[in-house]
């Protein structure tokens, strides 16, 4: 009990005192995860759009595959990418293992199915009339897509936030692909794993607090957007 309260107190002090080592880790975390979301979102939205409105053979199969991919544990995704990027793997030439790029790739792989699945649900709830109206009013396909996405933007926002929450707190793939290297690939979750193994509970809790605050903020936003979505519908 004593450990928890004193570690939490130290954690707060670390955070507020602007401890550079701590903030560096937080910065790396955000940089990697935001980049991953930014890169994953456009193709994921496109795919979600095709799944929601396209008519092509294998659409149902693809939906099933996306939903299955959601259930793949992060470490399995990490391991698969590890084997691909390893020196002896097919992409070994790229020398990406244990770099932030590898972490970004892992997080993209993690975020992608969740983004697609949630965006698909959001787009399915979109009104078919919105698409028809846009097209009748002379919108190009691209503009009509954009219009439709704007109409369901709260649902899409929820998809983004949920995916971001998933990857920023994920430890398995980041550890495997990034290697938890100080100053380079150590992010919040891998640092927590390390600090805990070292018995440095204050550092671990400080980082845990950051994740907790983040999760709280994301959830508030999520509720806000979901509420908006319901009122609009």
């Amino acid at each position: 009990m004593e450990t928890i309260s004193s570690a939490t107190w130290q954690a707060l002090q670390l955070l507020l005192s602007g401890d550079t080592a701590l903030w560096e880790i937080i910065l790396i975390s955000f940089r990697v995860s935001i980049l991953a979301i930014l890169l994953a979102t456009p193709p994921a939205l496109l795919m979600a759009f095709m799944l929601a409105f396209g008519q092509f053979p294998g659409r149902r199969l693809l939906i099933a595959i996306v939903n299955t991919a959601l259930a793949i544990p992060a470490v399995v995704i990490g391991l698969t990418l590890y084997l691909l990027l390893s020196r002896s793997g097919p992409l070994g030439e790229w020398r990406l293992l244990f770099t932030q790029t590898a972490m970004v790739l892992g997080q993209i792989a993690l975020a992608f199915p969740l983004l697609v699945a949630m965006a698909h649900t959001a787009l399915q709830a979109a009104d078919r009339r919105a698409w028809e109206t846009a097209r009748m009013l002379g919108a190009s396909r691209l503009r009509a897509v954009w219009t439709l996405m704007y109409e369901v933007r709260f649902g899409l926002m929820s998809a983004l936030l949920a995916s971001f929450g998933r990857i920023i707190a994920e430890v398995g793939a980041s550890m495997m692909l990034g290697g938890n290297i100080l100053h380079y690939t150590r992010n919040i979750p891998t640092a927590i794993a390390l600090e805990t193994s070292k018995g440095e509970f204050a550092q671990g809790i400080a980082l845990g607090l950051v994740l907790l605050l983040l999760a709280f903020a994301l959830n508030l936003l999520l509720h806000y957007f979901q509420g908006k979505g319901q009122i609009a519908a």
């Binding site: 009339r129 028809e132 109206t133 009748m136 002379g138 919108a139 219009t147 704007y150 109409e151």
Partner: peptide, 28 residues
């Protein structure tokens, strides 16, 4: 047909935004 004949849904679909925005949407 899609260009020349416009169909108004029984409950017309209006986009998010103002009346002005909706009108502007239809302009080239």
């Amino acid at each position: 047909l899609q260009r020349q004949i416009l169909y108004l849904h029984q409950q017309p679909y209006l986009f998010e935004g103002s009346v002005w925005d909706n009108l502007a949407y239809a302009l080239t």
